[in-house]
Design a protein around this nucleic acid. Structure first.
Lengths: 265, 265
DNA sequence: AACGTGAAAACTGTATACGAATATTTTGTG
DNA sequence: CACAAAATATTCGTATACAGTTTTCACGTT
C-alpha cells in the first residue's frame, strides 16, 4: 500500500486508499458532513491526485464502470469525473476507456507560446500584490524544493515546485488572468512530468524559482516578468530536449513508447 | 423569430433553428451520417454558437430539462453539454439552472488587460496565415459593416463585425491561442452591446477593422498586432464612456439596469 | 500454420426514474 | 397590511436500464 504522503496537496480529500471498502467508507463519511461537494467531485479529485502522482500506468485503461464499483457508486458520478478529467486534459477518451493523454507535441509548443504571453504579466502583477504570508509560503516551498533536490527526491521536488507556482499565481490580482494561467496548469504538469525525469534540470528549476522569489521580495515587477519569461523559455528548451530523447527512445523500442505520436485534433 | 443569418459562421452545425422539430430533425440527420459526433457534442456546439452570437439573454436560465426537450433528447446529453459549457467558462452553474457568467465592471477591465496580451499575438499570427478565401470573407464582412453603418442598422453592423472578428480569429494557427481568445467572446459581446449603443463609436469600429484588414492584406504582422492593440484600447475607452453613461442612467431609473451589479466571485 | 470470419464481451452513450436540496409561492398570523 | 412559516415547485445529482458500437477472441478454412 502506498503511503499517504503521495496525496495531492491541493486535493480536499487527501486520501489515497486503494480498497473499495475504504473508498466507500470515505465517501460515506464525507457526504455525511455538512458540506456535500458531490460524489463525482470527490472521485474527480482522487483520480486527479493519482494521475498527478504517477500512480496511473500509461497504458492503464480507466473505465467508468470499474471506477464506479471501486468507489461504490453508480456509473454516472464516475463517468462525470472521468469526462471532466478528460476535458481538463488529464485524461483522454478513447473508444475503450480513458487513458493518460497522448501529449501532442504541437500543442505543448503552442502553450509555451501562450505562457510567454500571459505569465510575465501575471508575475509582474503578483510582485506588486504578494502578501507577507504568501512570501513565507513561497520561501518554505523553495526550501523544501532545495532539500528534495539534494536528497534526489523527485516526487517531493515536484510537489514543492507546484506549491511554489500556485503560491504566486494565487497572488495575481487580475482574477481573469489568474484563471487563464491556471487553465494551462495541466499542460505545465505534463511538461514537468517529462522534464523532471532528468535530474540535470532540477538545479535550473530551483534556481529559477529562487530568482523569481528574490524579484518578488524586491517588489520588482519588471525583474519578475523577466524571470518568468526566461523560466518559460528554459522550460521549453528542457522539454524539447526531453522530447527528442523520448523520440529516440521510441524508435529504439517501439513496443513501449514513452511519448506517443501526434494526435489529430 | 430570428433570421437564419444569425447562425454562427464557425459552428460546424450551422443551424440556428428555434423549434423543437427542426432541432430533432437535424440531430437525427446528423446522427444518420457516418460520423457520429454524439448528441451531447452537437448540443454543446449549438449552445456555444448561440452564446457567442449573443442569442442567449443575460438573465435567461438554461435548464437541462428544457434544453433536452428542445433538442428532443433526454436530460443526460443536455446536462453533459451544459456542464461542459460551464466548465469551459461559457456558462455559470447556479442552484437554479445555468446562466451566462455575470461579468462585472472589474472583470471587464481585467479582460481588456488579458486581450491586450493575447490578441496582438493572435493577429500577428493570423496575418501570416490568412487564406485568400478568408480575405474575401473579411472583405465582404467589412463591406456589409460599412453599409450597415451608413444605413444606421445597428444590428447588422453588430453581426458584420462579429463575422469579421471570427474570420480572422479562425485563421490563427496556434489553436490554443485561438481558443483562449475565443473564450472571452462573451465579454466582447457584452462590451459591444454597450459600445454599439452609441453611434459615435461605429466609425471607430469600422475604421479599426479596415486598418486591420489592410495590415492583414500586406501580411504585415507587426502592423496587425499594433492595430488590434489599439483597437482593444479604443474599445476600453468606449466601454468606460458607456459605463459612465450607464451609471448615470442607472441612478436615474434603477429599475432596469444595463449591467448587473457585482458578483461575489 | 496463417488468415479471415463470426460471435461474445466490454464499453460507451442515452433514456428514464427517484431522492434531495433549494427557490418560490401560498397561506396563516400578528 | 406586513411578515413569517409551511407547502409547493423546480432543478440537480445519482441510480438503474437499455441499445449501439467497437474490440477481442475463438473457431474454422485455406
Amino acid at each position: 500500500m502506498r503511503s499517504l504522503e503521495h496525496c495531492a496537496p491541493h486535493s480536499v480529500y487527501g486520501f489515497g486508499s486503494e480498497t473499495e471498502e475504504e473508498n466507500i467508507a470515505i465517501l460515506k463519511s464525507a457526504s455525511a458532513s455538512n458540506a456535500p461537494p458531490g460524489t463525482s467531485v470527490q472521485i474527480h479529485d482522487v483520480l486527479m491526485a493519482r494521475i498527478q502522482n504517477g500512480e496511473v500506468d500509461p497504458q492503464e485503461r480507466l473505465v467508468d464502470t470499474a471506477v464506479a464499483t471501486e468507489f461504490g457508486v453508480s456509473r454516472m458520478p464516475a463517468r462525470d469525473a472521468l469526462m471532466r478529467l478528460a476535458h481538463e486534459g488529464y485524461l483522454e477518451q478513447t473508444t475503450k476507456g480513458f487513458v493518460l493523454p497522448r501529449i501532442d507535441h504541437q500543442e505543448i509548443l503552442e502553450i509555451f507560446d501562450l505562457r510567454r504571453l500571459l505569465e510575465p504579466r501575471a508575475a509582474a502583477l503578483a510582485a506588486q500584490n504578494l502578501s507577507e504570508d504568501a512570501f513565507s509560503n513561497l520561501e518554505a516551498a523553495l526550501i523544501n524544493a532545495r532539500r528534495a533536490m539534494k536528497a534526489g527526491e523527485r516526487e517531493k521536488l515536484f510537489r514543492a515546485c507546484e506549491i511554489f507556482r500556485n503560491g504566486w499565481i494565487n497572488a495575481v490580482p487580475n482574477i481573469s488572468l489568474r484563471k487563464a494561467v491556471q487553465r494551462y496548469m495541466t499542460q505545465v504538469q505534463a511538461v514537468r512530468m517529462m522534464t523532471f525525469a532528468d535530474p540535470a534540470n532540477h538545479p535550473v528549476i530551483v534556481d529559477g524559482n529562487t530568482g523569481l522569489l528574490q524579484a518578488f521580495r524586491r517588489r520588482d515587477a519588471v525583474a519578475a516578468a523577466d524571470r518568468i519569461l526566461r523560466f518559460v523559455f528554459d522550460g521549453e528548451s528542457a522539454y524539447l530536449a526531453a522530447h527528442a530523447a523520448a523520440e529516440v527512445n521510441q524508435s529504439n523500442n517501439p513496443g513501449q513508447r514513452l511519448l506517443p505520436g501526434k494526435t489529430p485534433r
